[in-house]
Design a protein around this nucleic acid. Structure first.
Lengths: 204, 204
DNA sequence: CTATTTCAAGATCGATCGGTCCATATATTT
DNA sequence: AAATATATGGACCGATCGATCTTGAAATAG
């Protein structure tokens, strides 16, 4: 039997800010400006922390960035899991998934871009921690889309000759490319039509 | 009748370096490192110019970057024009075009990424000169691909229901997305198979 | 020759970078 | 009350940023 650990309360003044909220605010700054173009004062302003508090809580700019990136990835994967929920129709899930990209790619959202894509282009190949995260994310995303295509195929909803895993790779590349092109041409109607045209090539 | 202009030779020591070669060397640095992460010493080392010469010739870092970006764009469009040459079969052209992306997306080439995509993500929305160039490039690229699809359709080589202009938009997004995913997973065989699978959905 | 221009090399500039440190106030424990 | 821990705000650090300027040699013209 394990004796319940004596809950030793810490002595001093407790932390008075929400760490996760600070990470989220920092995430938004990195998202809008990119890693190199984000300066410490930007982060201090966004998190409303003093230099001392920020460094005590997160170590340094790079560590805070990784925390922000992890949060961004977690949000994206969670969203995908609801969009591609296995309890609903796989084709509906794929449509919802693509509709989400159209939405995030329109107007100001589109011009803001995608933290993952921006990070991949800015830091991948020069930062092993970033490499791992980006690579794993794309793999996870591809796996989820492939699973949806796989269920669609089992339900006889795919066009002849469509292979779920390669269709998933196509879709992943396509949506990431949407994010790139959307930086300068974030027109919702065209994005939606393009998405529909692509899905039409796969769906029976 | 116009009298031939008296060719007044300049007095001093003539320029002893090739401006365009310097732009190309600078382009390679921006390409490998990105705009913000490229420091003046990087450019001086690559161009083998002194600070004074570089500033006299190009004005400042930003202007030199635009020159480099223009060169990158010119190279890309010229290459497309030969790949999609209207004198050869449009489907062959599209295959050549995609094969080029597979090549540039493999191994070290892939890890280096694409200056246009990186610039779009890093600077678009915060630099009007960059915005214009990126937007025009994507438009020009899409137009060329659409023209190839259009010729393929006229030759009866497209699958039923494929519309050239939306197929072109799909392809452009796809190849730019390839560049993103290729930053961490530049595997030639998978890229080639994915490209083939996509084209199969369009070609009869 | 002199005048002119460009070259490389580097000193120098103010601004800003990421990061550390300190003084002081505050909030919580024992 | 005493001890402990965290908060803020700002001073401060060395390094580096992009950019300017100086110096003296080299290459061309008249």
């Amino acid at each position: 039997m394990r004796r319940p650990a004596p809950v030793q309360l810490p002595r001093g003044r407790p932390r008075s800010f929400d760490t996760e909220a600070a990470v989220e605010r920092a995430m938004n700054v990195f998202w809008s400006r990119g890693y190199h173009a984000t300066a410490l004062p930007d982060l201090l302003r966004a998190t409303k922390l003093s230099r001392g508090s920020l460094y005590a809580a997160f170590g340094d700019k790079h560590s805070l960035f990784l925390r922000a990136l992890d949060r961004y990835i977690a949000i994206a994967l969670t969203r995908m899991d609801t969009e591609l929920d296995h309890r609903s129709e796989p084709v509906d899930g794929l449509r919802a998934y693509l509709a989400g990209y159209v939405e995030r790619n329109s107007g100001a959202n589109g011009r803001r871009g995608c933290l993952l894509v921006a990070t991949a282009m800015e830091l991948a190949g020069r930062d092993v921690e970033v490499d791992r995260r980006i690579g794993n994310f794309f793999k996870a995303m591809e796996a989820r889309v492939a699973e949806a295509f796989s269920r669609a195929k089992a339900a006889g909803q795919l066009a002849d000759g469509v292979e779920p895993s390669s269709a998933a790779r196509i879709l992943v590349c396509f949506v990431e490319g949407l994010r790139v092109v959307g930086k300068t041409a974030p027109t919702r109607i065209i994005s939606q039509a393009t998405v529909d045209a692509l899905l039409d090539r796969f769906i029976r």
